[in-house]
Amino acid sequence: MGRIKKLLNTKTFGLIVATIVLAIIVTALNPSFVARGNIRNLLNTLSFQGVMLAGIAILLMSGNIDLSSGAVAAMGSLVFALLLKGFPGMPWPVALVLSLAAGAIMGLVNVFFMNVVNLVPFIVTIGTSSIFGGIATVITRGNAVPVNVPSFLNLGKIAFFKSIPFVFVVMVAVVLIHAFVLYKTRFGRSIYMVGGNPQAARLCGLSINRTRAILFVSNGVMSTLGGLIWVCLRKQSNPASFIAAAPNMQAIIATLLGGVSFMGGAGGIGGACVGLVLLNVFNTGLAVLKAPAYISVAVNGLLLIIALIIDNVNSMRMRRMLMVSAIKEGAKKRAAS
């Protein structure tokens, strides 16, 4: 009972309710929202965004941010398409592994600038985003590279019970693995500590640089996987349009919306996922209701600002307890008592 009560009090529960209410409202206004095709589209979108979200959410919890994951995904999936095109005999799983490795290398490049050159993640990843994305555009010259491997493309068509796509199951698996690492391993727990108070974490023998390195490399791999799902669904790799769609920004907004702190150290994968569902129900809903695109663009920004304001208030409250000169607290208390 206690558990259920606790769940009812959480922010995540509030988000779930909001999502359901929103879905009901949209369906009431236009029943085609729950049409099979629309749901399938929604689940497809959730698939590649969800995979990217898993890596991004963990990064944010550790007090980092990666703005390059969109470009990494575009570049990584391009590697995949090019390998298949360049070596027609190559089995696609080999190409898949190689492209994931490319993603890991791009993650390492980010790590290099942060851990060795000592630059801040925000700016580094803006820069590398421009570099990776740029290289992808140079290679494709702005065009798409088609992928014609039936056994791979079929994965995009498979659906269980006619409506749950295989790629969605992949996404769920990825999210579960991330959740498992986060909640069930020492490393996962240390992510919260590093994100919550790096100084204190260091004193407990945790390495901030090592944590960051692992997470950025893993995020490089996850982003690429997200990019591959997109390729699988679109039957082509098109870096320019992928970057323009900015699924990584959606993932960041969803993560913050789902209660992961921008300051690091707080929030959970579950919340982030609910945030993503809410965001997508919202966006698809607007599309179904034929609302002009500008509303969803503006609202996405507004949601980010609101999520940040809430996050700011929360972490300020927590930090004030801990950081503000302890003496002041004491003086106040004395005066009161």
Binding site: Y192, M193, G195, G196, N197, Q199, A200, A201, L203, S261, G265, A266, S315, M318, R319, M321, L322, M323, A326
Partner: peptide
């Protein structure tokens, strides 16, 4: 100044 992790 506490060496604690507030969010944990």
């Amino acid at each position: 100044e506490r060496q604690l992790i507030p969010s944990v």
